[in-house]
C-alpha cells in the first residue's frame, strides 16, 4: 500500500531558478523548513502542472534521499504547500499505517 503521510501545510521553501533552453526558468526547491527541521532536497522526481479550477498549481515530487516529498506551488498565491511525505521504508511500515477502513 501507499504509505504517504498527508500533511497539507504551507511551508517555507528556498528555491533556485535556472535558465534553460526554453523561455521559462526551471525551478528547483533546494531547501524546506518544516516541523522545526530543515530538509535539503537532492533530486527532483517530476514537476507537473495541474489545475484547481482556473488556478495553476505546479506539483513538485522531490526527494532528500530518505523520503519522497510532494510539494505544491500555487502560481497565483506564490505559496508552497507540503502535501505529503512518503518514507523510504515503503513496505516495512505498511502494517503500522494500515487501518481497518483501508481494507
Amino acid at each position: 500500500m501507499d504509505q504517504a503521510e498527508l500533511i497539507n501545510k504551507e511551508v517555507s521553501i528556498v528555491a533556485y531558478y535556472f535558465r534553460n533552453n526554453s523561455r521559462r526558468l526551471r525551478c528547483f526547491p533546494k531547501c524546506m523548513e518544516y516541523d522545526g527541521r530543515r530538509v535539503r532536497f537532492t533530486e527532483t522526481g517530476l514537476v507537473h502542472p495541474t489545475q484547481k479550477g482556473k488556478r495553476m498549481i505546479h506539483v513538485f515530487d522531490m526527494t532528500d534521499g530518505n523520503a519522497d516529498y510532494r510539494l505544491e506551488f500555487d502560481a497565483q498565491a506564490l505559496s508552497w504547500t507540503l502535501i505529503a511525505i512518503t518514507d523510504n521504508q515503503y513496505s516495512s511500515i505498511a502494517p503500522k499505517l494500515r487501518t481497518a477502513h483501508q481494507f
Partner: peptide, 10 residues
C-alpha cells in the same frame, strides 16, 4: 514508470 520517475525511492 511515471510513479517511479516521480518518487525516486520507488
Amino acid at each position: 514508470t511515471v510513479e517511479q520517475q516521480a518518487r525516486p525511492l520507488l
